[in-house]
């Protein structure tokens, strides 16, 4: 952020596609989401996915392999906003201090 006016692209253009990936929002986190699979509908039968829909930073990773469903957070980008926890209909996510 120390670049001078002539060291940055013209007009604010972002000339490197997809460079948002380099910006790791995980560092913003004060609290982290913790998933409890017991009541989770995704784990149970591959439904719901509300946390995945609402996460603003695409940090909920839902995967399916041979009919088995697994769940994880990408903590590199999860910024700890708690939206997933608030939206979960089965209270399967809770927030913990970092």
């Amino acid at each position: 952020m120390s670049e001078k006016f002539n060291e940055i692209p013209m007009a604010g253009n972002i000339v490197e596609p997809g460079n948002a990936e380099k910006y790791k929002t995980g560092g913003w986190r004060a609290e982290k989401p913790i998933h409890n699979p017991e009541a989770c509908l995704w784990i149970k039968n591959g439904t719901c996915g509300r946390c995945w829909i609402f996460c603003p930073d695409m940090s909920v990773i839902l995967t399916e392999k041979n009919g088995k469903y697994s769940y994880e957070f990408n903590y590199e980008y999860c910024k700890g906003c708690g939206i997933c926890a608030a939206e979960c209909p089965t209270q399967s996510i809770h927030m913990e201090k970092e």
């Binding site: 952020m1 007009a11 604010g12 972002i14 596609p17």
Partner: peptide, 22 residues
């Protein structure tokens, strides 16, 4: 691919105005 017309706030906006002025 590139992005045009993105957000630039307190950190960069002024520099782009400097470019425009020059």
């Amino acid at each position: 691919p590139l992005t045009m017309g993105p957000l630039a706030l307190t950190d960069y906006y002024f520099e782009f105005k400097e470019q425009q002025d020059r």
